[in-house]
Design a protein around this nucleic acid. Structure first.
Length: 604
RNA sequence: GGCCCCGUGGUGUAGCGGCCUAACACGCCACCCUGUCAAGGUGGAGACCGGCGGUUCGAAUCCGCUCGGGGUCGCCA
């Protein structure tokens, strides 16, 4: 690093080879140890820590200044690097072979006692951390997260540049899109009553860049979605957005595999990244794991017992199947020894995810030759020993195992068993933190039926191409049309998704129609896309993945806020700046806006 | 929108109906101390228990509402 005027060296950079040199350091007081006639100051800057020694006899002024110094004071120290004696070296410190004998100690700024420790990695209330984020970010784990993110961005830029992708910036003030996520909206002053939206993704622009002949585009793009937050979801986030002309699925998946594997190897060489990345179809993922983003680090696969249930005399089972639903199960190895109370805990978990309950079967013998005495279940007399045996065998249960079954609407059953599966993996300690298990999920359905809206909705987005062999089904059975769409997953998280796009006007119109967007509406809302398709649009496809999430996984945390410098709370607010906040009446007037208070009358 | 968890000195926790005019650790302040590096020693300050209301002779402890934080289902094309 080029030294600025006020310092010559980074604190953490000093080594034995610097011994004898005069240095000027500047940084924060990490710790101060006062021995009366000898004061040690651990001085911290971005490079790390070094011990500064201040003695009264040699430099009375420096000593006097050091006496008044407190934690987090900003100091400038002029002194000499000396090698420590053998007995006083500190092997736990990178700079532990040396120390700096201070000639002068200058207080550049004082500091109040921080609201929480910069030193300890305490579990401090996140609200407080966010209120004082500038202090929180001083903690080494947070600084490391910032550095990791920087290096990830750097890696991505180099990688994409090396493959001749062109970084192009797209607008932040864009047109609103009624589909998909709720838009963040910005009022227009020059066009009273009109609004911009903040982009949910640069989707249309990047496709238009393909029409423009850019061929290979990428952007580290800021995206906005006004939806409820989660541990892995923020209202504004950063994506690597890419689009590629004349490519097919294989090109993109291979590119992504190289990118993810390379980034992981560079940033976290200590982690294992199994290759090639497994690929499974959406259908397979849902059948085997009940999730389109399964954690592939462990098994615990699901089994379908719908046929057994259909013929069952147990009403819960038969009516579930009769009503168009399914009955599926998962095995907990060794779960037969769980108490009723422990099994009920799983049922309660299932209830939080929408299941009326769970059916449990605990086998104390091999299911194939289990008698009624070998199966413990609250509903054994309803299910009957024969079906219990069949279910146990179907699920692959062994003696000593617990089978948990969910019955009902297919989507709910998947949600519930996915949740149970994750919980079982935790309980059974099957989650290997040293592995980043990437994978691809392919062949997503093109559309799904929206029961509330009574219409077909694009699963990915309306520009996704259908698979050519399914194109004939677009009119007859749209629900069975597979899209040329794919997701990247890792350790149970969705990293991002992409697709081969439609580049022909007619097909695009056909899909719009399927989605209930008539010709007039399509022209009005997507006219620019349709027009562009008439001026030589190349075949193209692309992808976008969340950089925050990748950074989170590389950092080994399950909370996205830990890798975002200034994140928002669950209510999408920033306790430090107070955003969002009311604006002045003059501002409202200028924008021709009036506040319409909510029914409960509560305003900030 | 639903459900779950949490809210006690600066920080993290304990206390879960009277023993609490609230305890412990770290931090903070003062004094002592020339080799520590989670320094040490002695002494000290600091919360009325998120807010409001209720139950009770009595509440940090029970109940209701509310605010805030976290998690999750729905939502996130």
């Amino acid at each position: 690093m080029e030294a600025p005027v006020l310092k010559t060296h980074g604190c953490g950079t000093l080594r034995a080879e610097h011994a004898g040199q005069s240095v000027t350091l500047a940084g924060w007081v990490h710790r101060r140890r006062d021995h009366g006639q000898l004061i040690f100051i651990d001085l911290r800057d971005r490079d790390g820590l070094v011990q500064v020694v201040v003695r009264p006899n040699e430099q009375p002024d420096a000593y006097a200044a050091a006496n008044d110094v407190r934690g987090e004071y900003v100091l400038r120290i002029v002194g000499s690097v000396v090698e420590r004696s053998e007995a006083t070296r500190n092997p736990n410190l990178a700079t532990g072979d040396v120390e700096v004998i201070a000639r002068s100690v200058e207080v550049l700024n004082e500091a109040k006692t921080p609201p929480f420790s910069v030193i300890e990695d305490d579990d401090v209330n996140e609200l407080v951390r966010m209120q004082y984020r500038y202090i929180d970010l001083r903690r080494s784990s947070m600084l490391e997260a910032l550095e990791l993110r920087h290096r990830l961005n750097q890696y991505i830029r180099d990688f994409m540049t090396g493959r001749e992708f062109l970084e192009v910036e797209t607008p932040i003030l864009v047109a609103a899109t009624p589909e998909g996520a709720r838009d963040y909206v910005v009022p227009s002053r020059l066009t009273p009553g009109a609004f911009y939206a903040l982009p949910q993704a640069p989707q249309q622009f990047k496709q238009l860049l393909m029409v423009a002949g850019v061929e290979r585009y990428f952007q580290i793009a800021r995206c906005f979605r006004d939806e409820d937050l989660r541990a892995d979801r923020q209202p504004e986030f950063v994506q690597l957005d890419l689009e590629w002309s004349f490519c097919e699925e294989e090109d993109i998946l291979n590119l992504l595999e190289e990118l993810f594997a390379g980034a992981a190897a560079t940033l976290r060489p200590d982690l294992t990244v199994p290759r090639p990345f497994p690929r499974l179809s959406w259908h397979e993922a849902m059948e085997r794991f009940g999730s389109d983003k399964p954690d592939l680090r462990y098994g615990l696969e699901l089994s379908d017992c719908s046929d057994i249930a259909e013929a069952s005399s147990f009403g819960v089972f038969s009516s579930a199947v009769a009503g168009g639903g399914r009955v599926r199960g998962i095995v907990m190895p060794g779960g037969a020894s769980l108490s009723r109370r422990e099994v009920d805990a799983f049922t309660n978990l299932a209830k939080t995810m929408g299941a009326p309950g769970l059916v449990s079967l605990q086998f104390s013998a091999e299911p194939s030759d289990a008698t009624e005495d070998d199966v413990r279940s609250p509903v054994l007399r309803h299910v009957g020993i024969d079906d219990a045996r069949r279910i146990g065998e179907r699920c692959g249960a062994a003696s000593g195992d617990l089978v948990l079954l969910a019955a009902g609407e297919s989507g709910m059953v998947s949600t519930v068993l996915d949740g149970i599966r994750r919980e079982l993996a935790r309980r059974l300690d099957l989650v290997d933190d040293s592995v980043m298990q990437f994978g691809f999920v392919t062949d997503f359905p093109l559309v799904e039926w929206d029961e509330d809206g009574r219409r077909w909705d694009a699963l990915h987005h309306p520009f996704t191409a259908p698979q050519s062999e399914d194109a004939a089904l677009l009119d007859s059975e749209p629900g069975n049309v597979r899209a040329r769409a794919y997701d990247a997953i890792c350790n149970g998280f969705e990293l991002g998704s992409g697709s081969i796009r439609i580049h022909e006007r007619d097909l695009q119109m056909q899909v719009f129609e399927l989605l209930g967007i008539g010709a007039a509406e399509a022209q009005q809302r997507f006219g620019h896309m349709l027009n562009a398709f008439e001026y030589g649009a190349p075949p193209h496809g692309g992808f976008a993945f969340g950089i925050d999430r990748v950074a989170m996984l590389l950092a080994g945390t399950e909370n996205i806020r830990e890798v975002i410098a200034f994140p928002k709370t669950m209510s999408a607010s920033d306790p430090m700046t107070g955003a969002p906040m009311p604006i002045a009446d003059e501002q409202l007037d200028e924008l021709h806006l009036r506040i319409n208070p909510p029914a409960n009358g509560q305003l900030r």
